[in-house]
Design a protein around this nucleic acid. Structure first.
Length: 436
RNA sequence: UCCUCGGUAGCUCAACGGUAGAGCAUUCGGCUGUUAACCGAAGGGUUGUAGGUUCGAAUCCUACCCGAGGAGCCA
């Protein structure tokens, strides 16, 4: 009978059994007659114990000579062991070396400290470390949670194009791409306009994919390529959008807390900060937030957008996100519906996360009136012809509608408590970093 | 794009204008319960690049390159 292959995560169900675990050597501690190879397989870490007296001489010598990140398949018996991290150990009976890393070119990332430049240059290897695998799993949980939330609430996934003919919003900088025959296209900065068309077809929709912004932002919260989920609902007003945003955040936070406790521990995340994220969130208008910020010493004037310091200042005494709505029309995109009670503010809403993680959601109610939308296009000096298909949505059964966009990396950074957004995506694209 | 800081061994960092050094990694030796194991030894350098000042530059000056932190812009 062949020996069953398991993962380290499954080891707890195989105590006393002889099993094989394929993986990589994470670290090796050894003395004259005993060695402790630490095995890594992506599901966890397992301390193995190789005792000289119980193994063929050649095998023990091979184990003692193993190099970091060599690929190995270890066979042995699983045992509960208090002294081992994770609570289980494997007594080695056999060890197959799949590829031994040569000592002439040792694995560059040692268990000691490294600088960020070195780690980013070796991102393809850095991903193997405990902290990075924990973040990857939480990102996965966030994405799975988002999809389950929308799928379970009557939304249909409709993917929007990545090549787009022009600016969705007309303002932000876009990456230009050479298409065929002198044509220029741009990498999408939002699927929203297409989402609005899709919502008129299907009622509730979302798109989920990469987004590109050619802004020369150099901060810990910006990537030039990031993932964004954007829901859009027909027959919806600002209040519906706010409830949806709140519901989504609570759902995903709950998922992460329930399913990724071990990873949060690896990251030393303060769990209580996530546990306090429960509806209802704080709500305020832009007007109120400006007053609060000014009282707290911010330079912000009515009509200006929040800086990073403002976002942190606004949420400093909050243990959950805040929904800020009714922004000045002057710095919001052309498609925002004006507030019914006041012309100078629009029905946009931003969700600002606590702990300095900033704006994780931006959205609102869209203009559904054809003439008003045409006027706004004109005011923003955007060419009406380019938006003709978009205007059709107001010609044929227009209804109030709205939605938002949520950045996956910012959300994941918040869940993980990471200092910098770059760790939340496998291969971050930033102002000065496009490799590996 | 602007401001600030930095670039020395594979990595993390020291070194007053006067012989470039430590820890880790690697190699060799020792050790039967280690937890970034420990102990002993060895090898390892055009000090980011190009100029300049000086008897003498890792150190001072200039330019450039690369990176980090922040600002603005934005999710």
């Amino acid at each position: 009978m062949s020996i069953p292959r398991i993962t380290i995560a499954q080891a707890q169900h195989h105590v006393g059994e002889l099993v094989s675990i394929p993986g990589w050597l994470y670290n090796l501690r050894k003395s004259g007659k005993i060695a402790f190879p630490i095995l890594r397989d992506g599901s966890g870490l397992m301390q193995c114990v190789a005792v000289k007296a119980q193994l063929p001489e050649a095998l023990f010598e091979d184990i003692k000579g193993l190099t970091q990140e060599s690929s190995i398949i270890v066979t042995g018996r699983i045992r509960a062991e208090e002294r081992a991290q994770g609570g289980f150990e494997m007594d080695v009976e056999q060890l197959e070396i799949v590829q031994r890393v040569p000592e002439t070119e040792p694995y560059p990332i040692t268990p000691k400290d490294h600088g960020i430049e070195f780690l980013m240059d070796h991102r393809h290897l850095w991903l193997r470390s405990r902290r990075q695998t924990a973040i990857a799993k939480i990102r996965h949980e966030v994405i799975k949670g988002i999809r389950d939330f929308f799928d379970g609430n009557g939304f249909t996934l409709v993917d929007t194009p990545i090549f787009t003919p022009a600016a969705c919003e007309g303002t932000s900088t876009l990456f230009e791409v050479d298409y065929f025959e002198d044509e220029k296209v741009y990498l999408t900065q939002s699927g929203q306009l297409y989402n609005e068309a899709n919502a008129m077809a299907l009622g509730k929709v979302y798109c989920f994919g990469p987004t590109f912004r050619a802004e020369k932002s150099k901060t810990r919260r910006h990537l030039t390529e990031f993932w964004m989920v954007e829901p859009e609902m027909a027959y919806a007003d600002l209040e519906d959008v706010k409830k949806l945003a709140e519901g989504l955040i609570c759902f995903v936070v709950d998922r992460v807390l329930n399913n990724r406790n071990a990873e949060l521990k690896v990251l030393e995340r303060d769990i209580s900060k996530l546990e306090s994220i429960k509806a209802p969130f704080n709500r305020m208008t832009y007007d109120d937030s400006v007053k609060i910020l000014q009282e707290r010493g911010s330079e912000i004037q009515w009509g200006g957008d929040f800086g990073n310091a403002d976002e942190t200042l606004l949420t400093q005494d909050m243990d959950k996100p805040v929904l800020v709505d009714r922004f000045p029309a002057s710095f919001k995109a052309f498609y925002f519906q004006p507030a019914p009670e006041r012309e100078d503010v629009v029905l946009g809403v931003d969700v600002i996360a606590p702990e300095g993680y900033g704006e994780i959601i931006g959205g609102g109610q869209r203009i559904h009136d054809l003439e008003l939308l045409k006027k706004r296009l004109h005011d923003h000096q955007l060419p009406e012809e380019a938006f003709n298909w978009y205007l059709d949505l107001r010609r044929y059964g227009s209804v109030p509608h709205g939605g938002f966009g949520m950045g996956v990396e910012r959300f994941t950074a918040w869940m993980c408590g990471t200092e910098h957004i770059r760790e939340t995506i496998a291969y971050p694209r930033m102002l000065y970093r496009t490799r590996p």
